[in-house]
């Protein structure tokens, strides 16, 4: 965006033009952070730490100041560990999140990735609520070339979950991906439904679900933290997927989620195509905060 362009440029000018990094420059850095949805409090904390770090720094070049901020930011983000430790079969992955964030699309992409890695994959369409949720997942399953357990509209989602896992056990599937309906975290009945799904999964194995991924729309602002907090109260979250990062939003709210809940980001969504899911890379993500697009 143009503003970011101006800011980054003016930071460079300020920093190269003057020996002293002044409050104005720090304000501009704060603006970059806040407009990335990092949140006012976290931004202030980072700027404070930067101020302190700068006291003992002789090198006040642009590069060095940016390097220091990146170190600060890097400290906050939990390192993601995408290599699954011991591979339990079937490996059950549940995908949750509020409405329209990209759960079903991400499941399609994940199914495709696992399939390409040579795994036998089955997806369960446990969104029995949204119009054509089933049909949507079915198209993705076909694209990915994986099996699907479908449901009837209005059916009990946990019965679809049960059926999917049972089939996976009986027919020796490696990976189970469960798509769930979008639900706002402040709707008690829908959150209860989610905890029922969890119970059904636990019946198969105490260690399951092996992964519960919260999908967060990359354009979301400060509400993302509340989403993560509320979902994690109902089901233990093992990772985040941040979607729609192919736009101009930066996804900065993950810093607060990471700080507060210590949940790693596993993947980012960068488009609507089946190959548009990337493993999260901390350095790239942090650098992108300061880049123009």
């Amino acid at each position: 965006s143009k503003t970011r362009n101006k800011i980054v440029q003016s930071i460079s000018e300020t920093l190269t033009g003057k020996a002293q990094i002044d409050d104005n420059t720090l304000d501009q850095i704060e603006e970059i952070l806040i407009t990335s949805d990092i949140g006012a409090e976290t931004a202030e904390m980072i700027i404070d730490n930067l101020r302190k770090a700068l006291k003992s720094e002789k090198d006040r070049s642009v590069e060095n100041v940016l390097r220091l901020i990146k170190i600060e930011l890097s400290k906050i983000l939990i390192d993601s560990n995408n290599k699954s430790q011991s591979f339990i079969k079937p490996y059950i992955i549940v995908v949750v999140g509020v409405n329209g964030v990209g759960k079903t699309t991400s499941i399609g992409k994940l199914a495709y990735n696992y399939k390409n890695l040579g795994y036998k994959v089955i997806v369960g369409a446990a969104d029995t609520f949204r119009a054509a949720a089933n049909e949507q997942l079915e198209i993705w399953a076909k694209l990915a070339g994986v099996e699907i357990i479908n449901s009837n509209k209005g059916a009990d989602p946990s019965s679809v979950v049960f059926e999917t896992i049972k089939r996976a056990v009986d027919e020796n599937y490696d990976i189970v991906l469960i798509d769930t309906a979008g639900r706002l975290h402040n709707k008690t009945n829908l959150m209860n439904e989610l905890s029922k799904i969890k119970k059904v999964i636990k019946k198969f194995s105490d260690s399951a679900p092996h992964e519960t991924l919260l999908v967060v729309d990359g354009t979301t602002g400060q509400n993302a933290l509340i989403q993560a907090i509320e979902f994690s109260k109902v089901i233990e979250l093992t990772g985040l997927i941040i979607t729609k990062l192919d736009g101009t939003a930066k996804g900065g709210m993950v810093f607060q989620i990471s700080k507060k809940l210590k949940i790693p980001i596993k993947y980012i969504g960068v488009g609507e195509g089946i190959e548009d899911l990337q493993e999260f890379d901390k350095e790239t993500f942090i650098s992108a905060l300061f880049e123009l697009k």
Binding site: S1, I34, T35, S36, D37, V98, G100, D217, T219, T220, G221, Q222, N223, A224, G247, T248, A249, K250, M253
Partner: peptide, 10 residues
């Protein structure tokens, strides 16, 4: 979406 953050302006 009412949950949209800073990027809404863009």
């Amino acid at each position: 979406d009412s949950m949209t953050g800073q990027d809404a302006v863009n």
